[in-house]
């Protein structure tokens, strides 16, 4: 199965892009060519050069180092967000889909309400209550991500709960919980995996958006979104400041989109 997947050009391309990005992120945790917060007045808004391959920002900080660090932050936030969304989504979706009845109605209506809020707005509300910072953003985005996963899992469970093999599992005396998570859940994985990847993309974009608005990662820490937001005042004098973080966001999202696309069209 793995072999067939890698033969598919979209999936292969996505995998290559994603692995390069992940590798860069991973390296960024341990090593950056310069200290990402080290300012250098002589290099303010410097262009690309051999010393600073992506140039320097308005404080003379090395953009390449900041991109590496920023990708780490962005990645961590995206992973944490998607994890919260997926775990809660699976639990809610599984219970509502499998058991149905009035509990299903109540939970799904609550989820509809959350779904009706734009995620950025929801996050803004959270941040204004709990204050800015990485963890509050993760929490806020995580909650905003629950509904889409819960709906996907729920519809899958409704599809599978009356299948013959679920009936025969019930007939073997298997408990409801075990049927839900051992018998049905693995069947939903194909659909779930591609939606996890799309969810990951949305999380990267939302984080970038939040940091752009100044409520995500706080300076002097870098994230791809906050770099973009700082770069917008220098768009014409130092285009490389905006281009490189932007390109990184695009590549990160593109890699996962291609992988999700490959998974879906299998």
């Amino acid at each position: 199965m793995k072999k067939k997947l890698l033969n598919q050009p979209t999936f292969l391309l996505g995998t290559i892009i994603t692995s390069i990005m992940l590798l860069m992120t991973f390296i960024g945790f341990f090593y950056t060519p310069y200290d990402p917060t080290q300012m250098d007045n002589s290099n303010k808004l410097a262009g690309c050069s051999l010393e600073h391959i992506m140039g320097c920002d308005n404080f003379g900080r090395d953009i390449f180092s900041r991109v590496l660090q920023g990708m780490g932050n962005t990645f961590l936030i995206a992973v944490a967000t998607v994890t919260i969304g997926v775990v809660c989504g699976i639990l809610l979706g599984a219970f509502t889909g499998y058991f149905g009845g009035w509990i299903d109605e109540v939970i799904m209506r609550i989820i509809d309400v959350i779904f009706a809020f734009p995620s950025i707005l929801l996050a803004l509300v959270f941040v204004s209550i709990f204050g800015t910072g990485k963890y509050n953003v993760v929490f806020a985005l995580g909650i905003a991500f629950i509904p889409s996963f819960a709906r996907i899992v729920r519809s899958e469970f409704i599809k599978y709960k009356d299948m013959d093999y679920v009936k025969s599992a019930r007939l073997a005396g298997v408990s409801d919980l075990r049927i839900m998570f051992v018998h049905i859940l693995p069947n939903t994985m194909t659909v779930l995996l591609s939606s996890i990847m799309i969810g990951f993309n949305n999380a990267v974009l939302s984080e970038a958006g939040m940091s752009y608005l100044g409520i995500g990662v706080q300076p002097p820490d870098a994230s791809l979104g906050s770099m973009l937001s700082e770069a917008q005042s220098y768009l014409f004098s130092a285009p490389n400041y905006a281009i490189f973080p932007g390109v990184m966001i695009i590549l990160l999202v593109l890699g996962f989109s291609l992988m999700a696309d490959g998974l879906k069209s299998r």
Binding site: D164, Y165, K167, S168, L171, G173, P186, M189
Partner: peptide, 20 residues
């Protein structure tokens, strides 16, 4: 169920879990 009473179904194509 499953211990003292066993049951087999009509449709062998759908009564086995495809991912196990």
């Amino acid at each position: 169920q499953g211990d003292d009473i066993g049951m087999i179904f009509q449709e062998p194509m759908t009564s086995l879990n495809p991912v196990k």
